[in-house]
């Protein structure tokens, strides 16, 4: 029993670590998509932010400046996306895809020219990374059965970005459902013409949504390179942006269900790492790829309406052109 409990605690712990960047990116995507702009570029923004964070942190030695650089780069990319899709009514999917590809190439080229390490950034130490934070009493409670392990292993001992991700969920929920900006955001994603008629700028709202989304995505990129790891590695987002997009869709473009989807996907990942090669009763060894593929299969099934129904914001993907 004790061993099983310990394993479960570790499993939950690594679930949270994997889920944090997904949550931040998916919430970022939520703003963009709720405003009616497809955000396939989550992957690119995450990767660009991860590079910016690691590069800035390596040069300045400060994790906070790294975080600022990550948010800056991610917002810049979001604005470029907006300039193509909102101002010039370009295809949103093409634009997002283009940014992903540009960033995948640029991070390696620039990183290589800057640090001469084949696209990697120098290893970060000390203040250049976000270290795990021990919450008060974590050490004291460690030996208390059950609660001690739960508190000191699961609640305490994460870096600040994990806590930011945790706070971001209710915050985004409040923002989207309880504020004036949130109401307009949801309206502009459903019926931009009505918002326009009310005298509110559709473009302005969408740009603002993209900026907030970009900032959140920046946090998630920074998490990868200066919190979870200690350097930027080429292609380190490795499809996490697309996974976040899948979680957003799986969560039906709502904050809390999106969080649940991220946790589910992350839990599958944590289990897969732990189960690797071990035989389970009845089923035997489950191939790694089977678990890896689970989030994508689930998302397809959901989109096909076999597991619930995902209804996208109505105006998503359609550039808004004012009638003259």
């Amino acid at each position: 029993m004790g061993e099983f409990f310990f394993m479960l605690v570790l499993l939950v712990d690594s679930t949270l670590r994997v889920a944090a960047p997904l949550v931040l990116a998916a919430l970022g995507g939520l703003f963009a998509e709720r405003s009616g702009v497809v955000d396939i570029g989550l992957e690119g923004k995450m990767l660009g932010a991860a590079f910016a964070a690691a590069a800035a942190a390596a040069v300045t030695g400060s994790a906070w400046l790294g975080l600022a650089a990550a948010v800056g780069v991610s917002v810049m990319l979001a604005l470029l996306h907006g300039y193509a899709c909102i101002t010039h009514a370009g295809n949103q999917v093409v634009s997002g895809m283009a940014l992903n590809i540009v960033v995948a190439g640029l991070t390696v080229v620039v990183g290589n020219a800057w640090f001469q390490r084949g696209g990697q950034t120098p290893q970060l130490t000390g203040d250049a990374r976000f270290a795990p934070i021990d919450l008060p009493l974590a050490k004291t409670l460690e030996d208390v059965p059950v609660i001690g392990a739960l508190y000191s292993e699961i609640v305490s001992g994460h870096n600040i970005l994990v806590y930011m991700a945790a706070i971001a969920v209710p915050l985004v929920g409040w923002f989207v459902y309880r504020t004036r900006f949130g109401l307009r955001l949801r309206a502009v994603g459903e019926n931009p013409a009505a918002v326009d008629t009310a005298g509110i700028s559709v473009s302005g709202l969408r740009y603002r949504a993209l900026i907030v989304g970009g900032a959140l995505c920046g946090l998630s990129g920074a998490y990868l390179s200066i919190a979870h790891n200690a350097a930027f590695i080429r292609d380190m987002s490795a499809g996490k942006g697309y996974l976040a997009l899948a979680a957003l869709i799986f969560g039906k473009w709502r904050p809390v269900p999106t969080l649940v989807a991220c946790l589910l996907f992350a839990f599958a990942d944590a289990i897969q790492v732990r189960l690797q090669g071990t035989a389970l009763p009845l089923v035997g060894v489950i191939p790694v790829q089977f678990i890896q593929v689970l989030p994508y299969v689930l998302t397809v099934l959901l989109l096909a309406g076999f597991v619930g129904r995902a209804v996208a914001p109505k105006a998503i993907g359609i550039p808004y052109v004012k009638e003259r």
Partner: peptide, 25 residues
């Protein structure tokens, strides 16, 4: 050596961006 192979990937991205997303520019 300053121009690694990934430069092609970046150029490819620029082309998609300009020919696709910014086709109305």
């Amino acid at each position: 050596p300053a121009l690694t192979r990934e430069m092609i990937v970046a150029i490819q991205g620029f082309i998609i961006l300009m020919c696709g997303a910014f086709e109305n520019l």
